[in-house]
Each structure stands twice: as structure tokens, then as C-alpha cells.
Design a protein around this nucleic acid. Structure first.
Lengths: 221, 221
DNA sequence: ATAATATTTTAGCCAAATCTAAAAAAATAT
DNA sequence: ATATTTTTTTAGATTTGGCTAAAATATTAT
């Protein structure tokens, strides 16, 4: 794996995000994303084409090829691992981590990244709930749904709560549920739409419909 | 405090180290240190002069002024804190941390550095035994001497070992001595110049002259 | 289908940080 | 004290990543 400049890395990452929904990325869209000018984008696309990271024909937009995607996933891995570190270890707020991770992500020692990953306990999601690619660039294809939509007996992980009122957080704390908690639904009661869940493979807890609606979870592909 | 480019920071740091012994730094010396050409050094010196970080008259060499030293200490603080992190938390070897810290040191968020410092427990020395400047750029004025020159009954801290052979590190490990270990000499034996030291205010250990020569310690100002 | 509009590319310029080669200044040796 | 050598600076070129203005191409509207 070659080394790329910070500027190249920022372009690669931006293209990866913009092409996520299967479309080709346009010059203007990328210029807007990176707060630069279309002419600069064209220049960089020529360069990245000669480096065989993307497909590009003049006026036709562009998409990363497999090599380009691999590079992008490496950058995203570094970014999200640092975000996790900043949030979990250094106690930064979730709103502060992105900006600093933008700088840290360009330090490209593979050994550093893999050791950091290990030190953090191989986290699967960053503080925003986005998945962290593993050493091989693999991202699992998770589904994110409200707890009311989680199928019975399917192991899932809490990744987000949509209401952050003190009352709700109190209740979650009381029930010992937080981001990252693993759980599965053992029974659904149609009378009041409440659900009975098993937390951490251990104790059973009942959750009201109102609470379940506000808890979001991920489960395997 | 303004922001400086990576290149500027590398020059500032190098000048700081070279001028440590009170002399003016020459163009050639700096070029050699930075693996660059004298002409490039001259160009950068002109720039740093206009930024008021150093004194420079053509053909006269240069020294950082107070502002330049402050900037240098900030960079060195970041470098050494990251080295400590890599060694202490990520379990990198002493010999691996420098290169990675060279990159990490350029991430300049003050809040990041101060929180990292706090997370690490405000360490005073990096893994090589060099002192880490505090938030205000203060470095304590320690004496650094070989263990053979440490006065009797004077509490000191291991800060450096000058021979890093596997054999020596094995021996140190066996005797349970590492960077940061506090010790004092209780007795010197003139027959073979061995010394008996008390480690961590606890057990007594005997150290050969050969080993003692290679262990460097610091003691109070 | 063609005119008007929007997008993208080209051409040429700029700044930072490097380089080489040559000139200038300082240090050293005879 | 002058010639030689070493050090430093200047002058001019290169590379990377950016810019503006104008030309080329594509899209949209009539």
C-alpha cells in the first residue's frame, strides 16, 4: 500500500462518502464537499487516475475502483479509531472529536493503527455510531433499527438513543442500558406493545413501547 | 499562538536542539540535521525571521528568540507526550516511538495535548528519559548523571540507558529496573566498583560497575 | 432543434518548499 | 597579505496543490 498526501487522502475520503449510494460523483459536488474549486478537482482527478485509484473520463464524473475503496477504508478506519480514542479515553464530547480526528487520520503507520485498535478493544462503532472498518478493511453490513422493529431472538447492540431527556437517560441508567449494550428481544406483548429483553446474555428486563421506540440498535448482516 | 507548517515546525525544533549549548546555529549544521540543502535553510531562516521567531543576519548564524523557544517547547511537549503514550499505552518499543511521534507532534490542538497529558498522568519524562515540558513550557532543571556518579543516599530516577543490547535489557528486567524507577545508592564497594542500591524504597540489589556505567539517573535540581 | 444555462475542463498564474549551480563572503593556510 | 578553501547566499527551476478566467461540453427550456 503506497502513501498518499493529506490532500489526496481528503479527496479519496470525500469521493468514497459521496459515491456511497452507487452514483458517480460529479466535479461540482466534490468541490462543494471539499470547499475548493471545480478546476482543482479536475486536476486532482487526473492525478488519482494516473495512480489507478479511480475511473475517470472527462465530463463523465468518477468512482473509486477497488484499490481506491481499499485506500478510503484505511483512512476511515484511522479516523474512526481516533474518534473513539478521543471520546472514550480522553473524554472529549462527541461534537469535538471529528475535527481533531481529521488531522490524526493522516498519520499512516499501519502498526500504530492496529495497536491503537487493540488498545481500544477492537471497537466496532465510533462515538457517532458509524462502523469502524477492521484491519482488512471489512465493514459488516449492519442494519440499524428501532428496538420495536428488532426481530425476536436476534442479538443486537444499542447504538443510539433518539431522545436524550434527563428522564429517559435516568430510566436507561436504571435499567442498565447504554450505547454498546448487547441485547435480544425474548418476547413481545401485543396488549401494550411492551417487549421483554435479555441484556448481556443475562437478566430479563421489560421495556415499554415508548422507551423501545427511542432506542436504536444494530444487528448482523 | 499562531500555527506553523510542518516544515516550519521541524526547523524550529531542530534549531532548538542545536542551540541548546548556548552557541549560534550554522546553516550547514542545520542542513545536515534536517537532511536538506544549505540553500533551503537560508530560505527558511528568512521566513522565520519575518515571523519574528529568531535572530538572523546573513552569514552570522541564528538563534531562536524567546517566542521561538516557546514555540519549540510546545512542539517538544507534543512529541514527548506522544512517545510516552506509544510506549506506555500501546506497548511500542523505545526504538519505534520516535518516528511515529514525529508525525503526531504536528497535530496542534492545545486541548488535545492537555487532555492527553492528563490522561497519561502528567508524566515528567518520555521513554528515552528526556523531560516533558508542562502546559506552560516549563522544564525542570534536573541533573543527569551515570549511576556510578550518583552520590550516596540520594534519591534519583532512572532516565536513560546508554546500551540497549538484548543482554543488558534482560539483566535490567531481571533486576526489575526500568525508566522511571526510583532508587538510591546505599553503599559503594571499592574492590570491584560495584554498588548496592535500594529500589523503590524497598529491596536492595547489587549492580556491577559495567551495568552502572550504562544506567543514567536524574536527581533533584 | 436550437438557444440559453449549467457544468467541466483547459490554460496560465501563484505560493510553499524544495533543488542545483553560481556568486559572494568568511575562514584558513601558506 | 594574499591565495585557497569552506560556508553561505542568491538566482533560477521544479513539484504540489491551489486559484481565476476563458473555452469546451453537456443539459435544459422554449
Amino acid at each position: 500500500m503506497l502513501n498518499y498526501s493529506q490532500s489526496e487522502e481528503n479527496y479519496i475520503k470525500a469521493i468514497y462518502h459521496l459515491q456511497a449510494d452507487g452514483e458517480t460523483v460529479t466535479t461540482n459536488a466534490l468541490a462543494q464537499e471539499l470547499l475548493t474549486r471545480p478546476a482543482s478537482v479536475t486536476d486532482m482527478m487526473k492525478k488519482l487516475k494516473t495512480k489507478k485509484l479511480l475511473n475517470y473520463q472527462p465530463y463523465q464524473g468518477f468512482r473509486l475502483n477497488n484499490e481506491g475503496k481499499k485506500v478510503a477504508l484505511g483512512i476511515i478506519r484511522r479516523h474512526r479509531l481516533w474518534e473513539y480514542f478521543l471520546s472514550e479515553k480522553l473524554k472529549f464530547g462527541w461534537d469535538e472529536v471529528h475535527e481533531i480526528a481529521e488531522e490524526l487520520e493522516h498519520v499512516s503507520s499501519k502498526k500504530l493503527v492496529d495497536k491503537l485498535d487493540e488498545y481500544l478493544g477492537f471497537p466496532k462503532f465510533d462515538p457517532h455510531g458509524d462502523p469502524i472498518p477492521d484491519m482488512n478493511g471489512k465493514i459488516e453490513n449492519y442494519q440499524q433499527v428501532s428496538l420495536v422493529d428488532l426481530p425476536l431472538n436476534t442479538l443486537a447492540e444499542v447504538c443510539h438513543v433518539s431522545n436524550q431527556s434527563t428522564e429517559m437517560l435516568d430510566l436507561l441508567k436504571h435499567k442498565n442500558i447504554s450505547i454498546g449494550t448487547r441485547l435480544e428481544i425474548k418476547q413481545k406483548f401485543h396488549f401494550d406493545s411492551s417487549v421483554e429483553i435479555k441484556i448481556r446474555q443475562q437478566h430479563l428486563v421489560t421495556i415499554s413501547e415508548q422507551l423501545a421506540k427511542n432506542i436504536f440498535v444494530r444487528y448482523g448482516a
